[in-house]
Design a protein around this nucleic acid. Structure first.
Lengths: 212, 212, 212, 212
DNA sequence: CATGAATGAGGTTTCATTCAT
DNA sequence: TATGAATGAAACCTCATTCAT
């Protein structure tokens, strides 16, 4: 049985001084750069440290191992996307279900596309680095935000249950993954965005008891 | 840019003799066993060969390298799922859209769940082994089958376009992936199956011009 | 030939101020604690400094390198044991050979057992840190003390020569090392103590010209 | 707490083919050579493999890690010494206690001195590699041989007990260690040999009930 | 004097792959 | 064809030590 679910992905030490924060950021950014330029399996801690302009030792002072570095990068990326969706949910409060869904989906797509290259690169490492755990965590957070927003929709009697929202979120994730990995043209992205909106809208409508 | 996407994942030779086929199957099966028992990163060619009861050398006689072995395993798994969906599409011909969709989705979910453990294990290797390429290929095949079935649905004027079907398939993939990676209870699976049917039904309905 | 036997093991500076002495002691004590809790190969200068409540930099202000720190700890331990034996030799002056030997051996055993854990831990580092040199030095000092005591024994004509005493001391060291490393029960220690007394007594008697 | 007592020191794989045996021996011998020429802390697996004329990979095919390699070397050395002592015990059967002791001690000293350089080099690694465990095991074996021999001594009523023999063996070990680490002249060795014989003889006599 | 972030050489170990038997 | 011993590049990671603050 694979037992690596137990390893600690958390960073080794919280940087306190300003200098440290800079270093940590430089390392994280370097990891992304290396990921983009060399690919997931050519990403080595030494290469990342080089790119970041620090020594390997420094890297290991802030990240207990390669996995925890990649985990941090992944987490950061997911958090950014989640924040964007949360913000959209905020803005969409009290709007009708259909519009609310639209804004949420569009925020999600736009956030993913904004750093499309990073998203794709991260798909390659996610599985080796606790991706599922992280996805679960982020989906939970996002689901809460969507749920809260849905409560305020004026045109529905009782909102879709948690489970339905989770289904929707994972469907969105699947669609975006396929899309991003196909290296789509802007036109394709636009079309996919529309369709994803439609998909979520129709599912939300179907999963909801409408107010008369 | 990572350039190892170019390597040949195809098996080294087409085994014609019966004995070879047996060996190839044994190796493929062993790969799955090792994947399940040791995890993706502890899967070594030597271990697979051991488990298959052959020598490493023999393994390399049938698979040009580790990637092509894993690719073959992955392909086989995907093909099985695709076949099940295709069969469902055949059976559902001339049924109404909603029912057709139901059967297709249920076939997909059931096929994935049948060897849930393998599915999960393969998620871990897919990214290192040309997963996206394969997914694209399989989705294309599946899409053709769905498309053909939809042509026969009596209650729609013009079926959803290719793009919509691809969106639906990737949504299904995303939902199943999330589900499988969460180690779901049978009850959860049942519920998810229902919801996924609903999701696809409502999307198909929305993406279709209905016949009056 | 290994040439690192030449490095200076001596502490970097003689601390005169009281605060310094406190710091040096804290570091030495911390080294022992780390040795006991983490083992010899997990002992790092950073860990010792942490345990001592100072920074690594401070550690290096008082000990020129890791070896010199461990050397100091070792030396301190050996000196304590040697002092106990010397004191016993003092007390045993003018007593008969047999009794004198008994007291000396018992002092040695008791001194070693008093901090048995430390003794064992130090065996692990001794070899990497100039142990033999130190053993030689301490044995020399102890031998002098024993020699001086033997001069006062009333029942011997001429005492055993230097060489015989050194043999005896190294035999005692060997027995204690085996004993300590076996994690002995109190009963075993008691028995070993008796036997070691017997061993030394009989050897001393055999190596001495008795007075008629 | 140091927990490395649990690691497996046993070799990874029993060489079956002749070629393998040659390789294993070459590696073991190379380890000794490196130990002598570079010292314990400059001994690296890479260096040993180089010296043995094989690749590191080959080394690791026969020894699961550095420790197990050194353990094997240590074990081999100890076994040689033990065999020599056992042989001496065989030859000394039915001789008087004093003569028996003499032959046994001399066999021990001679065996150790025969490869004095190796003995000294191994003291440096023993502690990091399960030395105590091994010493215990070898002492047990040697003690059995001595015990059996003593049973045949014609001039003693009841032989010294196990414990006394163990004391004697560890005393011998301690004396030899001190001697070897001092880099003694041949004359010194001769003298030490005599004294060690005397020490053991007198102790054995004292610990024995003589036959009238 | 004290700090602790940074260094980077160098160690151990793995594992895909080859090729002589 | 099958074998499996040998290969060796290359990965990860540690830790003694320094030096700017």
């Amino acid at each position: 049985m694979a037992t690596d679910a137990l390893v600690a992905f958390e960073p080794r030490k919280m940087p306190i001084q300003a200098r440290s924060t800079v270093t940590v950021d430089a390392i994280s950014e370097a990891a992304i750069q290396v990921l983009l330029s060399h690919g997931a399996e050519r990403l080595t801690t030494t290469r990342v440290a080089d790119r970041a302009g620090v020594s390997v030792g420094t890297l290991y002072q802030y990240f207990s191992n390669k996995q925890s570095l990649l985990f941090a990068v992944l987490e950061n990326h997911f958090n950014k996307v989640a924040s964007r969706v949360e913000a959209a949910c905020q803005r969409a409060r009290h709007k009708p279900l259909s519009e609310m869904t639209k804004e949420m989906v569009e925020a999600f797509v736009d956030a993913k596309m904004e750093r499309a290259d990073i998203s794709v690169a991260l798909y390659r490492v996610a599985c080796e680095v606790g991706g599922p755990t992280l996805v679960k965590r982020v989906n939970h957070r996002t689901r809460k935000a969507v749920e809260a927003a849905l409560e305020t929709a004026p045109d529905i009697k009782s909102p879709p249950d948690q489970f339905a929202i989770e289904i929707m979120l994972s469907a969105m994730g699947g669609v975006m993954r396929s899309l991003l990995e196909s290296g789509p043209s802007p036109a394709t992205v636009r079309k996919a965005r529309e369709q994803l909106v439609l998909l979520c809208q129709s599912y939300m409508a179907a999963a909801t008891a409408k107010r008369v």
